[in-house]
């Protein structure tokens, strides 16, 4: 029996824009076990990055709604003040590797300093100690000590990405959120980074929330897969179940659309376009594109059905 480290219950994050309220994260609930990695899969604009931001509470200014519970080992961190959250949670317990972060490294600071910075800010260590820890973090991600004094432009893409991972790990967090951590990298470099993440997970007992649009890539890390569509989680299943037999029609379509190299199958595409998060469709958000939609789907938003052993699906087909 593993321990649950992070639980989200009915998490909501809405943005207020000139066009209306964007329901980026809508009633999202999931559990993350210690040492487990949850892959959060979805097309662009489905709200997966917003969910990450809601968990680590890095929000833009135009928040309309931000409610629900996020339990970190039983403690509801949504109840903490911003200052408490910054002091106790962000980076100390939950770190994040942002999408494209490798291109956001400060070009005028040495990478050793940039890796040490979270320690200086969050743990108020003295510079010497922080540098020691930064060197150690860089070593763990496979960057030699001699690079500590270098600037980002002297690093290759893969090394920059390793640096960003080191920045997230230097504070020894329990949970690491990875938002498309390899999106700008080449396949071979991507495979190397994935190897690194696999090793780190094992060695450091890390829990991952791995955000990606690529169902093939998600299988590299996922112990559990959550499929997100239109701000809602549509299906959660452990990886073996999910890849063998996805239950939700959207998951099935998504799986079918993936071009594969080794198996002979003709990929299909999903007709139509993802819905607007301002005026989402009534009922099930996927029903306009769903091949097996029936009457009820357009009228009522389906609840979550448990297919057994933690396989959760939000689809009327599974109503008893």
């Amino acid at each position: 029996m593993t321990d649950t480290i992070l639980q989200s219950r009915n998490l909501k994050l809405y943005y207020a824009t000139r066009k209306g309220v964007v329901k980026a994260v809508n009633n999202v609930s999931f559990d993350l076990q210690k040492g487990e990695s949850l892959a959060l899969v979805g097309e662009s604009g489905c709200g997966k990055s917003s969910l990450a931001k809601a968990i680590i509470r890095l929000l833009p200014r135009n928040i309309a709604t931000y409610t629900g519970e996020v339990l970190l080992e039983g403690q509801d961190i949504m109840k903490l003040s911003d200052t408490q959250f910054r002091r106790q949670i962000r980076w100390k317990r939950i770190s994040m590797v942002f999408q494209g972060a490798m291109n956001s490294l400060n070009p005028v600071l040495k990478i050793g300093y940039q890796v040490a910075e979270p320690l200086l800010i969050h743990e108020e260590l003295d510079k010497k100690e922080a540098k020691k820890r930064a060197v150690e973090a860089l070593r763990i991600v496979g960057i030699h000590e001699s690079f500590v004094e270098r600037y980002p432009f002297e690093l290759s893409g893969g090394m920059k990405q390793r640096t960003v991972i080191a920045m997230a790990l230097v504070t020894n967090p329990d949970i690491l959120i990875l938002d498309e951590p390899t999106s700008a990298l080449d396949v071979i470099t991507q495979a190397n980074i994935m190897n690194l993440l696999k090793k780190l997970k094992k060695e450091m007992q890390l829990s991952y929330i791995f955000i990606t649009h690529d169902i093939g890539l998600s299988s590299e890390l996922a112990d559990k897969v959550a499929v997100m569509y239109a701000g809602e989680i549509q299906e959660v299943a452990d990886a073996d179940t999910f890849y063998a037999k996805p239950a939700h029609p959207y998951s099935q379509k998504l799986m079918a659309s993936v071009p594969t190299l080794r198996t002979e199958k003709k990929p299909e595409f999903i007709p139509g376009a993802p819905p607007s998060l301002v005026n989402p469709p009534s009922g099930c958000k996927f029903h306009p594109r769903c091949p097996s939609a029936f009457d009820r789907c357009s009228k009522e938003n389906p609840p979550v059905f448990d297919l057994g052993s933690g396989h959760l699906v939000k689809c009327w087909w599974y109503a008893k």
Partner: peptide, 10 residues
Amino acid sequence: AIPDPDPRNR
């Protein structure tokens, strides 16, 4: 380097 969707990958 290319992963096909396969839970054994992990």
